[in-house]
């Protein structure tokens, strides 16, 4: 057993015996650190009830007896508690919850409406169908052959527009 183990054993013995005043500040720090990693020691020492010296218990009783509320004070307190709990169980909480639900529903409905409108509006502009038809007349305006590709500028149906077409070289296909 090392000196540290022996010391820890001694602190545990003192704690178990309730002799808290025989422990040094360094020992209490040591036991605090040791308990962080020792579930068995926590379970064993955790069941201890730290002793209350009789002189301290008497002084506490004197202090608390002086301050002890009268029966009437307890009665008033109970009335206040009962009334507050009744209020919270009835109207205020119910209204609060209803308001919360209504608020959530309204936000959800508004979000749904915005999504629907966006979905309707967006395709009208961007996904409008592009009519496809075969060109009756195709003229090659320009043709250039490069090492990697061949480019064409093609005119369709006279004034039907021009297309630039890039055709990769065969070895790149």
């Amino acid at each position: 057993m090392t000196a540290g183990d022996h010391n820890l054993h001694e602190v545990r013995r003192l704690l178990t015996a309730g002799d808290l005043d025989a422990i040094t500040p360094a020992q209490i720090e040591q036991i605090e650190r040791a308990l962080a990693d020792d579930a068995a020691a926590v379970a064993a020492l955790g069941r201890q009830t730290p002793p209350l010296p009789p002189s301290l218990a008497r002084a506490l009783q004197d202090w608390e007896r002086e301050q002890q509320p009268a029966a009437l004070v307890w009665e008033h307190m109970w009335s206040a508690i009962d009334a507050a709990v009744l209020r919270s169980r009835r109207a205020p909480v119910a209204v609060g919850r209803r308001r919360l639900r209504l608020w959530q529903s309204m936000v959800a409905a508004a979000a749904g409406l915005i999504l629907f409108v966006s979905w309707q509006a967006y395709p009208l502009r961007a996904v409008e169908p592009w009519p496809l038809r075969l060109a009756g007349e195709v003229d090659i305006e320009q043709l250039e052959v490069f090492q990697d590709a061949t480019t064409f500028v093609v005119s369709l149906d006279g004034d039907g527009g021009q297309i630039i077409w890039v055709l990769p070289a065969a070895e790149n296909l």
């Binding site: 015996a17 309730g18 808290l20 005043d21 069941r47 002793p51």
Partner: peptide, 19 residues
């Protein structure tokens, strides 16, 4: 000064109870 060694005296300290 109120009760020398009584708050922490070994002689007066109660034994701890174990649940």
């Amino acid at each position: 000064d109120l009760a020398p060694r009584q708050l922490g005296s070994r002689n007066t300290t109660q034994r701890p109870t174990v649940r």
